[in-house]
Design a protein around this nucleic acid. Structure first.
Lengths: 240, 240
DNA sequence: ATAAACCTTGTACGGCGTACAACGTAAGAT
DNA sequence: ATCTTACGTTGTACGCCGTACAAGGTTTAT
């Protein structure tokens, strides 16, 4: 383990350990590896991010990647933090907490829409990265005007971000989308037979929800509706 | 593809296609494979569920597993549906919607606490399984007393279940838990150096949240508090 | 000139999911 | 009673994966 993950996360910080001057100059840098990995994930999804493939893209052997990144698991942490670091963190200005939180939620939904592979990275060590911390700080400040102690403030932000995560998961395109029409054609009849008259409510609501899902304007509706519910739930008793 | 996933999901239904009578009697059944896989996942996590390992546990060759299950991806769907099917679905009785929804949330949190590997299975085809459909129907009925149309009812349930999912994710034990103390010992100093005086709010709130996380009573607190917020958000305007 | 530190590389190991073909077995057809 | 057909089981093999290891090359510090 030549350089610790925490130092790789903070590799752009002045106090980060530079590589010793000896030996040949590195052909690629940690940053370059992370960027290439993100391009790959953006284009083909996280499973396409393999060490061999990365080496190929970078014009370097597979094992050389490990000089800059320690392990694939570490790489995923670096990717997630870099994705957060790339988020714009616009000043909250004089907007009230409701608009602030709405903006935070929108920004996170946009991020997860552009980089759905973030939903597949679930490593607590991401919390130590500069991008993640800066984002966390910024988003906590969206709640400045609410009467929350520190623990409740963290809980409230988590609450909002978990909602966003759920919405992003629902909106994410199914990788099996192309096969589903045929599968459905084969399955619809059988499923109807199995279901018979049971679960009438589930059949009706599921059908309605499915139809709404395919309607063009619907995801927006479910999102805005749900988000307003989230905002309502944050409203302090005094304002109700 | 000898038998379709949908038929395997409904394998206990009277109308499900039985295997033809010819040939030797199968040494294991689809149900047995799924049960073994669930035991394995319960004991050692989802990555331990490999085809070779399953064959070993079942006393059968690896390839023989494919006679009963088509593919590993299909197996995961069967496991998830079986887990839902095993949930108790107690009558809602005369309880009001608030208690009903609370019970639904509690039951789901308990399920995801017992079988955290469910969080790692994300396949839309699970929705066609009998266990999943029965659960869906039951949980929709928890919202009977609320003035919601079909689409909104589905959205409301998703809202609740996504909240539960987020809570379960947070409570899930980190598989890296044993290494973290040492890593933290190595990292704490460096991180403090990197952070300096920046992000004061994040440092304070993160510290408080982290401390609360380690306190014994806290997960319960965050859960009940958040759940009440969710319930509040479902309250129709007329009742406010 | 020598030594130390560093990057790069090829090979190899043990895992994974699963395609394929050979073989055995039991029931239906004759 | 024999043959045929459908099915279950198995071993082998392919192409992936992450990565341990050791050898070799390159640069700077001594």
């Amino acid at each position: 383990m030549p350089r610790e993950l925490i130092d790789l996360l903070w590799r752009d910080h002045p106090a980060a350990p530079r590589g010793g001057a000896r030996g040949p100059q590195a052909r690629v840098s940690t940053g370059a590896v992370v960027e290439a990995a993100m391009r790959l994930a953006d284009a083909e999804g996280l499973p396409a991010v393999t060490v061999r493939r990365l080496g190929e893209v970078l014009g370097v052997s597979a094992m050389s990647v490990y000089t800059h990144v320690n392990s694939r698991d570490d790489l995923l942490v670096l990717m997630a933090d870099a994705a957060f670091a790339a988020m714009p963190l616009p000043e909250h200005g004089s907007a009230g907490w409701r608009t602030r939180v709405r903006r935070v939620a929108d920004a996170n939904l946009a991020l997860l829409g552009e980089r759905p592979w973030l939903l597949e990275i679930d490593d607590d060590r991401t919390a130590f990265g500069p991008g993640t911390i800066a984002k966390y700080d910024h988003e906590l400040h969206a709640l400045d005007d609410l009467p929350l102690d520190d623990v409740a403030r963290d809980a409230a932000l988590t609450f909002v971000l978990d909602f966003v995560r759920g919405a992003a998961r629902a909106q994410r395109p199914d990788p099996r989308a192309d096969e589903m029409p045929q599968a459905w054609a084969r399955w619809a009849g059988r499923l109807a037979e199995y279901l018979g008259d049971d679960h009438e409510l589930a059949r009706r609501v599921g059908g309605a929800a499915g139809a709404a899902m395919n309607a063009p304007s619907s995801p927006t509706h479910a999102w805005t509706y749900g988000l307003e519910r989230v905002l309502d739930s944050l409203t302090p008793p005094a304002e109700r």
